[in-house]
Nucleic acid binder design. Sequence first.
DNA 1: GGATATTAGTTTCATTTGCAACTAAAAGCA
DNA 2: TGCTTTTAGTTGCAAATGAAACTAATATCC
Lengths: 161, 161
Amino acid sequence: MTERNGKQPVDGERLELDGFMPYRLSVTQQEVSRAIAAVYAKKHGLMRHDWRVMAALGDAQPLSANEVCRRTNMDKVQVSRAIARLKQKGLVNQHQDMEDRRRSVLRLTGQGEAIYRDIVPAARARETDLLSALSEAEQKQFGQLIDRLYRRAQYLNKSRE
Amino acid sequence: MTERNGKQPVDGERLELDGFMPYRLSVTQQEVSRAIAAVYAKKHGLMRHDWRVMAALGDAQPLSANEVCRRTNMDKVQVSRAIARLKQKGLVNQHQDMEDRRRSVLRLTGQGEAIYRDIVPAARARETDLLSALSEAEQKQFGQLIDRLYRRAQYLNKSRE
DNA sequence: GGATATTAGTTTCATTTGCAACTAAAAGCA
DNA sequence: TGCTTTTAGTTGCAAATGAAACTAATATCC
């Protein structure tokens, strides 16, 4: 993929991006993400964060913004902004939780649910299509490996801050 | 990870983010990326794109901006801007290719090379640390699976535009 | 009860990004 | 040769992002 023809690399230890796992993970994620975005972006004009929030709500309503954060791995600023966009589009409504008035109660609107129901099968189909590059066994394996990697990365990040 | 206590999901087909591969890939990538960024961000004030461009150059100099694009999977706008930042910091220099005066000839400066040499071992160590969550065999396997997935995603994305 | 600390969520500001338009040079073609 | 197209790289603008500060409500502690 990367030919070195007469080029002068830096002396000593080098790093070939193509063989560097974090890089490969990143480009793969980008490509996969693009493949999935095709499902919700053009047709419904949603961004990745918007879709994630909708997915969280579609899976379990109502949720507070904070619960959305936990379920989607987004931070509260991102969630707050996604909600603003979604309210604006009439896909989500937000009202105050009367038990704890700091908290919101978020729900998909009828229109929001309709879009959710439109996207889910397409997203799933896309996932299946992507994963068809792997056998059943490999898919399972891949899921396990990526989880272990995730936890390891999380651990490393936590431990130093 | 995701409990459903009294929540009312949307009727019909739902989607649990936690079991959705593109989502898991995305959060894993984010976490891994953060772990690596620690190596170049704080100490040298570089952004991800800057580091990628430097990595490409460190691996094979000189390169044109376009060659950097191909090697790093970045688009030309990102590369152009990364180069601007890197020139500004004195880590890269750019001059015109006299064979084809549209093209640039990009090289790390002495300072750029020094930083490159500082980062590479640390990045590698970090990669090893991340991958230590997987056995040797699993690491190999993971590499293969992710590549297949990458190619599949790429194919799907190409085929529809 | 009242001061202080936490928690939920929003906002502000400075950067970064993404897209499309743009400039300059080279290639293709008639 | 002169005209059009393609390629390399940059720029402008509007939208998205990240970090820190901010508001409002609840929880904690004396």
